[in-house]
């Protein structure tokens, strides 16, 4: 029973992390129709910026998280401007931007290696201490992640549904031409969606930076998981993406328990292939 509860808690932590990652990917996909392979690298940059502000400058972990979020958001705007916007009119936009965002990943990872060096880094937790959840002790920082993820997701959902700008992003995602005709500045909407997504990645990185080590390659594994999540949930709505994120978190936690850490990625990818074969639009996908 204890093992079961501990696994559930671990799945919840993983699910929160994946939900934050995948919601950013989903936002960019639904608005721009681009799959951003640099999302993991943006997460890593957010973590490094947070570490620099918090530790190297000494401004503390809260300032670090804020700086990591904003910094990644700004870098997101630059990426959109330089390697995505020039290809909007291209017929192969999806393919071209897959390559350009992969290139950005390499540039950011190598860049981080040059700027911050190879030594492992870690952020102090935002909150100290431990919290007991279902009889299991988890760090207060992890508990914060558990609370923060749904709050951020609900805020993002409310933003897209009931704010003026959020509605315009949905309009752009559904029909760029008509959105321009009703007065929405489409390039600006693209930049904004990309910036929000990048900021979410940066925030995730900054929060993860006190649970895992910060390294230039730290974004690749969460990105892979987020890809599995969006394939599972379908890239359509925030709700199905979040649902899939928690589901994958639980599946991963139980796989670690049953088949071990070594075989877990294999089993997850096998599951992903099965979903692609049986439900190509995701388990929550409609069409």
């Amino acid at each position: 029973m204890d093992t079961l509860l501990a696994t559930l808690v671990s799945g919840l932590v993983l699910g929160s992390l994946y939900a934050l990652m995948a919601s950013g990917l989903s936002l960019v996909w639904t608005t721009l129709g681009v799959f951003n392979f640099a999302h993991g690298a943006l997460m890593m940059v957010g973590a490094f910026i947070a570490w620099t502000v918090s530790e190297a400058v000494g401004a503390g972990p809260v300032a670090g998280v804020v700086a990591g979020t904003l910094g990644a958001g700004l870098i997101g705007i630059v990426i959109e401007r330089l390697v995505i916007r020039p290809f909007y009119a291209s017929r192969n936009m999806l393919l071209v931007t897959a390559m350009t965002t992969l290139a950005v990943t390499i540039i950011l990872e190598r860049g981080a290696q040059m700027i911050w060096g190879p030594r492992l880094k870690q952020l102090p937790p935002l909150v100290d201490g431990e919290i007991r959840l279902f009889g299991n002790a988890i760090s207060a920082h992890e508990a914060l992640l558990l609370v923060a993820a749904p709050v951020i997701l609900i805020a993002l959902w409310r933003f897209t549904v009931s704010s003026k700008i959020g509605r315009s992003l949905r309009a752009v995602g559904q029909n760029q031409d008509s959105a321009a005709l009703i007065g929405v500045d489409v390039p600006k909407a693209f930049a904004l969606a990309f910036a929000i997504s990048a900021a979410l990645a940066g925030l995730t990185g900054a929060l993860l930076g006190s649970i895992r080590f910060i390294t230039p390659a730290m974004g690749s594994e969460p990105l892979t998981k987020a890809m599995i999540v969006v394939i599972f949930g379908g890239l359509g709505s925030l709700g199905s993406t979040a649902g899939a994120a928690y589901l994958i978190g639980f599946i991963e936690a139980f796989l670690v328990l049953w088949v071990g850490l070594y075989w877990t990625p294999f089993a997850l990818f096998l599951l992903m292939i099965l979903v692609l074969l049986l439900r190509p639009n995701g388990i929550f996908g409609k069409r």
Binding site: K164, R167, S168, R170, A171, Q174, N175, S178, A179, I182, G183, V184
Partner: peptide, 21 residues
């Protein structure tokens, strides 16, 4: 094309039009 924004309701569509255009 028949539906400009298939997932937006009539109210939402007009709200975007009104606030932007």
């Amino acid at each position: 094309k028949d539906a400009e924004f298939p997932d937006l309701t009539a109210d939402e569509t007009l709200l975007v039009c009104g606030t932007y255009n």
